[in-house]
């Protein structure tokens, strides 16, 4: 059974105010599919953190949430600066966000760690100067 359902979002890097909208929309859609509240929460938090990261660091990008019968996949792809040291970036509290962004309450260095915490699998592919693609997976069973 390979049926799947895809939700696609363009994450606008120039409009900080709209960051987090994809997460709200996905939450609504997952509710309509009748998924358990805990799963919905995991996916929406992981997506939210990813969206914010793309807006802060990469001038936006694309987010896809693909629902399969046994799992939900979240793919975040951007053409941003790339992550030079992924291990360092995964450390809680490590952040390269600007002062400006921090003053808004972001940049606590919890984005990537939270994405890992709330998903069952997470893979980061990144090349400096080319971009970053993060693939996350939440299992339904």
């Amino acid at each position: 059974m390979s049926e799947s359902l895809k939700f696609h979002f363009d994450v606008d890097g120039d409009n900080f105010v709209s960051a987090g909208q994809a997460s709200v929309q996905v939450k609504k859609n997952l509710r309509r599919l009748g998924l358990p509240p805990e799963i919905i929460r995991q996916v929406s938090i992981a997506l939210y953190e990813g969206e914010i990261n793309m807006v802060i660091h990469a001038h936006g990008g694309e987010a896809d949430v693909i629902v399969y019968e046994d799992k939900i996949e979240i793919i975040l792809a951007d053409k941003g600066p790339g992550i030079p040291d992924i291990e360092l970036a995964m450390q809680e509290g490590y952040s390269t966000a600007t002062e400006n962004v921090r003053s808004l309450g972001f940049g606590a260095g919890m984005g990537l760690p939270n994405m890992k915490r709330y998903t069952d699998e997470m893979k980061i592919e990144s090349e400096v100067g080319v971009g970053t693609t993060i693939t996350m997976c939440v299992y339904l069973k």
């Binding site: 059974m1 359902l5 309509r32 599919l33 009748g34 019968e69």
Partner: peptide, 9 residues
């Protein structure tokens, strides 16, 4: 879930 997904599609 399968039916929900078909309906959503």
């Amino acid at each position: 879930l399968a039916e929900s997904m078909r309906m959503m599609a």
